[in-house]
Nucleic acid binder design. Structure first.
Lengths: 329, 329
DNA sequence: TTTAGCAGTGTCAATACATAAGTGCTAATA
DNA sequence: TATTAGCACTTATGTATTGACACTGCTAAA
């Protein structure tokens, strides 16, 4: 258990470091703690001993360790009140009844990204949670058609298909009918395999050149099942922080943002607002991730904020909490 | 008119600089030009005089100026043969008959991005060139519907709409019917205004709470008309070049890539493979853009490569030319 | 016209040095 | 016993100096 004063000291150091990114020394804190720098040095040494602080070199000021941030997040910070300005910006979005929920979410996250200087990520439901509702096909010319898939959650995917030279429009129509009759309600990521075992065997009865047609649909559904709904804002915000002044590191992180499978790792697995500091997240050791899942009439997703380890945890948590409640209201 | 030797010299310097990014000095070129470094220095001084070369400081080697690159591109380089490996990779894509054109293009550009270490951009037709072919609406629950727009070129856009509480499904259907009857063939970017002047006046005859419904469609079409089809690959490739070792510059460029209106400036306005070096392009003074328009059965678009000013012009031009012909074949 | 030779210039890396910021420790103090 | 003044010590940072290096431009000779 940390003494009152040690807690106070740790809090001050974390907050100062978040603000300036400079290792914080003992003398600057005398006033705030009403004691001498020597006393503070003693306390600091003890906080370092138990792993809450680190030094960059023997005679430097102290920097919070990941453990230090964790303690700060868990027990030292208290959710701030939202400043009037922030509330206003976000509230305006949710007051706009024209706006569809998903648009409101992405817009809000863009704003949060702007005011926190962090990258925001919105992850939609994965394809396994989307069930096939309807397939439609629109012919473009004699060789090309557009297949449109609508899921029960209202997601739409589409893909142009090459159906092959000698396939009749009526044959395409027949296949679509079959799919709509037999496969509606199937989770999107299972459609392509069901297609193989339930549609393929009987497709030959109706369609002459069934192989090409089957392949086209198979490929399309296969692709749909991999597609994921994600949206990001402020991808380059990180570059403003001093700790990322190194092009190699920047490139590493930006590449992760461009890599879908990496971004998917950010997906939240519970409804709390969770903070993952440095190594605790499986995205990148040099950042922190704050995320939460939201659920609103059956549809669920993740909203997340990615920032430097010295991000303003208090503020981001407050904002995310506010947003989550607005979404779910 | 440049002497034979001056041309040869400039070519050597450009190609050496492209390879190493180091200012090139006189002594290294003696062998290749069969003369002494002093002679080369004289020639260099003269090339500098007419603005083809620059020095980074008084006693440094020479670096090509933009004018130098321009001369190189216009008259010195000659389109290389494609190496077998590159051809193979691209050919495989176009041999795959399953693949729809647009997918083949984006896949090819990804490969080109990889082998040239540049960023590739594919820009689809702008919305003004897409005409409305069909609107479909799929109800999700009693308040929400998905509107799907298909254009004559096979593009699909969709948007979830909030139609308001007291709107009947039959009323939505009626509006869709009206749009499909009156507005098919309209360029996508004119639909929302036509909606106002041709549909709005008569919509009241069929629909009770027409204002909300009208607004929903109006907003949706307005959004569609701004959407542009673009695809990029290798967004972070630039970071590998020494000239971009500075986070501020990197951020500037990456932000432009994230800004649709900026990327649109890359759009090509003719069918040649054009090279825009540094200031010549209106995207960013520190990069070069090589681009061309492709047209294939009525559909047109831009393929472009963005790289450092010292990019391998010969190779990129060759690749883009090869790709363009494959697309249009 | 070409070239050898040389003085001159700017970069870069290494070194040295002074300064500033911060620490740990000790001994005195409240 | 907890606090603090004081001091020696450590490291980073900034500046100046230096020598090696890679060039150039110019001159005078071939």
């Amino acid at each position: 258990m940390l003494s009152e004063r040690k807690q106070e000291l740790l809090k001050l150091i974390v907050e100062e470091y978040i603000k300036t990114a400079n290792p914080v020394g003992s003398s600057g804190l005398c006033d705030k703690l009403n004691c001498s720098s020597a006393t503070i040095r003693n306390e600091m040494a003890s906080l370092e001993e138990i792993g809450f602080l680190e030094k960059t070199h023997t005679s430097s000021g102290r920097v919070p360790s990941e453990k230090g941030y964790r303690y700060y997040v868990d027990t030292l910070m208290k959710p701030k009140e939202m400043t009037g300005e922030d509330v206003l910006k976000l509230q305006r979005i949710f007051d706009n009844k024209q706006l569809v929920l998903s648009d409101a979410i992405t817009k809000s996250m863009e704003i949060i990204s702007e005011i926190t200087n962090c990258t925001s990520v919105v992850l939609g439901a994965s394809s396994s949670e989307n069930k096939l509702k309807e397939v439609q096909v629109v012919p473009l010319d004699d060789k090309r058609v557009v297949a449109i898939v609508i899921t029960d959650k209202g997601h739409v995917e589409h893909k142009e298909l090459n159906v092959g030279d000698n396939v009749l429009p009526s044959e395409v129509k027949k296949v679509v009918e079959l799919i709509n009759k037999l496969l509606v309600g199937t989770p999107l990521d299972e459609v392509s395999s069901k297609l193989e075992f339930e549609i393929k065997p009987i497709i030959g009865n109706y369609v002459k050149s069934h192989e090409a047609l089957y392949q086209a649909f198979y490929n399309a559904f296969n692709e749909f099942s991999y597609k994921s709904h994600m949206h990001m804002a402020g991808r380059t915000k990180l570059l403003d922080y001093r700790e990322f002044d190194n092009v190699a590191k920047v490139k590493e992180i930006l590449n992760k943002f461009d890599d879908e499978s990496m971004v998917k790792k950010i997906e939240a697995d519970n409804n709390d607002i969770s903070v993952y500091i440095g190594h605790e997240n499986n995205f990148d050791d040099d950042v922190s991730v704050i995320k939460t899942r939201y659920v609103v009439n059956g549809e669920e997703g993740t909203i997340a904020i990615v920032g430097p380890k010295r991000m303003d945890y208090e503020r981001v948590v407050t904002l995310l909490d506010f947003l989550k409640h607005n979404i779910e209201r």
